[in-house]
Design a protein around this nucleic acid. Structure first.
Lengths: 346, 346
DNA sequence: CTGAAAGCGCTTACAG
DNA sequence: CTGAAAGCGCTTACAG
């Protein structure tokens, strides 16, 4: 890596190495150094060499803060997430970080906590920090607000269908995922399939319900409202939903929960009622969180590639930043079958 | 930069509001505006009023980038975490974000992935970004490296015992937590208590083993190496460890796993062997991840207040940044008892 | 208490 | 191809 004098990459007594120092050592003007740094102009081979040498010798690292002020860009992109500690978004954040970092960008994460007002504040903070663009992971900002933002800087948003210049919307096919999950239960021979919805304020919750209905229709199984109960995407709500389902005394042999957290809550409720999974009731979730593989029984789920989605979102942002129109391919939903929907469990 | 003019808190045609514009409107010099912004000097009441009005009227928001360049501070602090998507660290990150944000600071999160070289790179990135200080969540950097860093900027580190100026180490009492967990099992009447260690390269894993041994000693139960198996803090390693324990044919009636993820893996193994928890084997973990409450059976654990630890770390950083010696009180470990260590489970 | 001035480290028209 | 100069938006000695 780099050669250093003290443990901090700075020459003794001289403070951080600046571009001016590099210029002087190389015998050129600061402008020229800046230009080769930014690939902004062609420079003669000799000067380039001299500069490269000087940079290496001094261990020069450009100051992003100064670059930001002078150049109007900070090489940073803001990321609005709902919660830093969400099991699902966490993986997406990691994907974003990875992709951005490879391109020399930094990510600035801020949390909206599922609250439009807070998300708006996040945008203010990010704008104040002069990020070059913003990635919005779902959230509750209105489509119009996002389009407004996109007039000022590139925006990438997940979980929506939006079109605007400088705006790219990445959408995972929630409906299809839900359809696959439900169809899987149908294929197993289930006819009484209960559904625990997500928080219906979220568009993806609506999509997942659409998928559930579509699969029933395909199988000519009549939709029965009594087998549907609303959840809020939390474990607790899943547990309550399962209890509600049981209390309705409307027989069912399988449950599709609109996310894994609710499925886990439902599983606990069933266990406590002495019901066997999948013997008495088959259960499938959505998201395929890491924990699914280790719950009891291991939970079948619709695999949502959070990490890859994060990478793709970042990649789209990078492309927008280059002034290109993003071309990316969102993977299709797939099923991850585990014991919770197998014929019997050990 | 581009000139902006719409729905985003900026005046039409004039681009972002600058401090100079505020100064002009208020009829004072930029220096004065800057001073009241930073509380750097006393200003006459009238001017102060005029400036406040101007700021409000213009909707001025100071540009942190410029402040950073000019003032040598960026109002941002770097946070080195191991993985953005870790179930445990996620909560700590949220705590850090919360506390920092309240003080007008932003957090810059970077992941070290349990790798000293990557962590060193993280430090480079953060230094290049001119963060005002760095919070290091555990990690593998050497103590000396951290002390070196602390010569240049405030450092807060968790999971270590270190002393240096501009360096504050926050330590949760891992040993005591482990002792409590083991003692709980002892109090339940268990005498053959198996232990699945964490990754012994981590100091906290060593501390947790110390706690396990201490509790046995207190209870005059001889330590038996055959009841101890090494894990790596992952679910898989917990599952493998449980299998190993069973294969040794050394009877045990309870297991203490050095973290919840391993406990979950172990639980799955036991279930598959037809063992009942807690009937055949009581099980307790460490960390008290949110998932513990919904696993089957709900898992007893040593509560580690990750969110609060994050807040405390951030608070310590803010104090260092003020030039103060941090005074903070780390909460003591407590037990969260659930069904996995109850006499019987429904 | 308050200005004028210089400067933070870089970039970018503007002229060769 | 390459400099000199101005400027990004703010802060901070330096002088009153």
């Amino acid at each position: 890596m780099k050669s250093r004098n003290n443990a901090n990459g700075m020459r003794p007594g001289s403070g951080p190495v600046t571009l001016a120092m590099v210029a002087e050592l190389a015998g050129v003007s600061p402008s020229t150094v800046s230009r080769i740094l930014n690939g902004t102009a062609v420079v003669s081979a000799e000067k380039r060499q001299a500069i490269d040498d000087a940079i290496a010798k001094l261990g020069f690292v450009p100051n992003p803060v100064a670059r930001g002020l002078a150049g109007g860009r900070t090489l940073s992109v803001g990321v609005i997430t709902q919660a830093l500690d969400s099991p699902f978004y966490g993986a997406a954040l990691r994907g974003i970080e990875l992709e951005l970092q490879a391109a020399g960008y930094s990510a600035l994460f801020v949390s909206g906590h599922w609250n439009a007002a807070e998300e708006a504040r996040c945008i203010d903070v990010l704008r104040a920090r002069r990020v070059d663009g913003i990635i919005v992971l779902t959230g509750r900002l209105s489509d119009n607000r996002l389009k407004e933002c996109a007039k000022n800087m590139p925006i990438v948003v997940t979980g929506r269908n939006l079109k605007a210049s400088q705006l790219y919307a990445l959408n995972f096919d929630q409906c299809e995922g839900a359809r696959l999950a439900t169809k899987h239960l149908v294929d197993l021979g289930h006819k009484k399939i209960a559904f625990i919805t997500g928080d219906m304020e979220h568009p993806d919750a609506q999509e997942r319900e659409r998928g559930y209905r579509a699969a029933l229709e395909d199988a000519r199984i009549p939709f029965d409202q009594r087998l549907v109960v609303n959840g809020l995407y939390t474990e607790d709500s899943g547990m309550a939903a399962a209890a509600e389902l049981l209390s309705r005394r409307r027989p069912f042999t399988a449950v599709f929960a609109a996310n894994d957290q609710m499925a886990l809550g439902a599983a606990l409720c069933f266990h406590r009622q002495g019901l066997h999974i999948p013997g008495d009731v088959a259960l499938i979730g959505f998201d395929d969180l890491p924990v699914c593989a280790y719950s009891y029984p291991p939970l079948s789920s619709v695999h949502q590639p959070a990490n890859e989605m994060g990478r793709l979102a970042a990649s789209a942002m990078l492309q927008l930043l280059q002034g290109q129109k993003p071309v990316i391919v969102m993977p299709s939903p797939t099923l991850k079958i585990r014991q919770s929907t197998e014929a019997s469990v050990s």
